[in-house]
Design a protein around this nucleic acid. Structure first.
Lengths: 337, 337
DNA sequence: CTGAAAGCGCTTACAG
DNA sequence: CTGAAAGCGCTTACAG
């Protein structure tokens, strides 16, 4: 029998049970609000003791025996540019928006959000070790999800992942449509030389920017336009760097694969003396709050992040295997195009 | 003895031990790399079996017996404006920057980040239930930290909190200095009518904006200037709303309590036809990436977030009770002032 | 260097 | 309605 540790010992369910004169099973039942299992007077007595002793349940222990951890993961691949070794890397504000909206939804059900923003190769371990009940995967590129994930019953929602998988669930915007909306808008505005600025389009064809590009590309084909591609990492600096290429290519209408990139692109264009939208019209993608912060405010494709997060959480709770939710994108016209 | 559940049973340390022909204690020792405890041949055999069987440690169970959860919390109070009941509330990009920088630091040591972004009244429960090893508290306002937190040995770092407490650790920027830097800069630029725009300054004197205001205010006093106060929630829209008041007050130099607010303020001023910085010079605070995204780019006070996050994690690991780390702020001159 | 055993703080059938 | 007991998957002295 261990001695009291120097830190005053944690109050456990045993302490409560003893003080209330009941068994730990009864305390447990009261705590879970199983009214049918416990008489009201007993329940009330237990509640009072819980209050008095300042008992707080150890969810870790509960998780171990109930096999539900109450932990939901956000697995975010690509938050940090793997190729950049700057000490102070840029972070797309998209991820912050995503995480806090998610936390908000989760908290309402008593679940806790754990963040993973590391390399794609290591997330599976994270998922299994921590015994997550479920997770939302953002930016996963690999064509196949490891089969281990099928054997353990983790509920997974692929978010913005165009990885097809029969067992896991998916939430996504209709990105082909989104790309097309952007291209059609520029074409309608009489832009003749269109370009698409985005990251890792050629290397990872199932990557979000690649799909957006594809959608825009098809729309261009249909009206006899060409869509040039400028590849840069999706970031402000990436967009800024892309500005030179855009000017060299003499594009007068550009679609950026993300608002953050559109912001950098506009900055780069302005620095080079080009006027936006007069010389070059720029359409962003995402409709983050950021889209309204920059000058000129971005014309952009709203991907519907709040709805998507809600949809993802719904699937996490009671989606069917393989269920897919597709959100419609919308064009939001402001001043950059 | 429970039957196999329909999902193929998790591989446990027992399975590994049996297959390797050793005891679970030995497996445990091998997994923790306690080389001194296990002979190399045995260790190697165990490792091979672990590999073969695809064994993954259950950190939950490990946490329960070792009393270390490996979970670190980020408790963020004030992410959502409690007074606004908009469906789609604004989120200060500061929080995203904070969270991902933190995750990055934590991951290097194998710790997992859990997020709490709810009400101040409920975080203690979160902390205790989840058995966090430690947590970083941002934006906590209450004058006193609950004493429960002293009894259980959670390591707490107050981040940007001017709540004094002898047992918990603290990381902060010298905000008085920061406020003064901003004010002195505007004064040096011959601005005569200064204003400070920030949230909850009067109601919560230990709130960050309040300290920044105080610092700026003292600097003004010293050179015989007055500093007017315009209170609005720290957000883009808050800043935008503040623009009207700023113009009414005929201020020609304004300090915003955060970059996001400065961005909104500038937008509001521009919409009202005022030129920044010619008519009104604006100094932000934080030096978030956002500061470079807006036009004109913000002159702002760099609070040194990356260093602060690193300092917080260091304290979490081996800070002394009550240890405080103060980071020096710096003025970053761009174009808004 | 290795193993048997107790324990971490809960939950969950099951018996009464 | 209530309790005794087994079990969740680990870690940690301790004995050998």
């Amino acid at each position: 029998m261990p001695l009291l540790s120097k830190a005053s010992k944690q109050v456990t369910i045993h302490d409560v049970a003893r003080r209330a004169g009941v068994s730990i099973a009864t305390v447990s039942n009261v705590l879970k609000g199983r009214a049918s299992e416990v008489s009201e007077p007993t329940a009330e007595r237990v509640r009072r003791v819980v209050e008095q002793m300042g008992y707080v349940k150890n969810l870790n222990a509960a998780a171990l025996s109930s096999r539900r951890s109450g932990l939901i993961g956000a697995i975010l691949i690509g938050v940090f540019d793997p190729y950049s070794k700057e000490p102070d890397p840029e972070i797309n504000p998209f991820y912050g928006e995503f995480v806090f909206r998610l936390e908000n939804e989760l908290q309402a059900h008593g679940d806790t959000l754990c963040i993973y923003a590391g390399r794609e190769e290591a997330y599976v371990n994270f998922l299994l070790e921590r015994n997550l009940d479920g997770a939302i995967l953002v930016g996963v590129i690999a064509k196949d999800l490891p089969t281990v994930l099928e054997r353990r019953d983790v509920r997974l929602v692929l978010f913005d992942s165009f990885v097809h998988h029969r067992t896991h669930m998916r939430v996504q915007t209709d990105e082909l449509k989104g790309g097309a909306l952007a291209a059609d808008f520029l074409i309608a505005r009489k832009r003749k030389h269109l370009a698409f600025v985005g990251g890792a389009v050629r290397d990872f064809p199932s990557n979000i920017p690649a799909i957006r590009f594809q959608g825009a590309s098809r729309a261009c084909d249909q009206s006899g336009h060409r869509l040039l591609l400028v590849e840069e990492w999706t970031s402000f600096e990436g967009g800024r760097r892309a500005a030179h290429r855009v000017l060299e290519l003499k594009a007068d209408g550009v679609i950026a694969s993300a608002d953050i990139m559109a912001a950098g692109l506009i900055r780069g264009l302005q620095e080079a003396g080009a006027k936006v939208p007069d010389d070059v019209a720029v359409v962003g993608y995402d409709d983050l709050p950021l889209a309204r912060y920059v000058s000129p405010p971005l014309t952009t494709i709203r991907q519907g992040l709040p709805e998507k997060v809600r949809a993802a959480v719904e699937l996490l709770r009671d989606g069917e295997k393989g269920e897919v939710r597709v959100i419609k994108p919308h064009l939001v016209v402001r001043e950059s195009a």
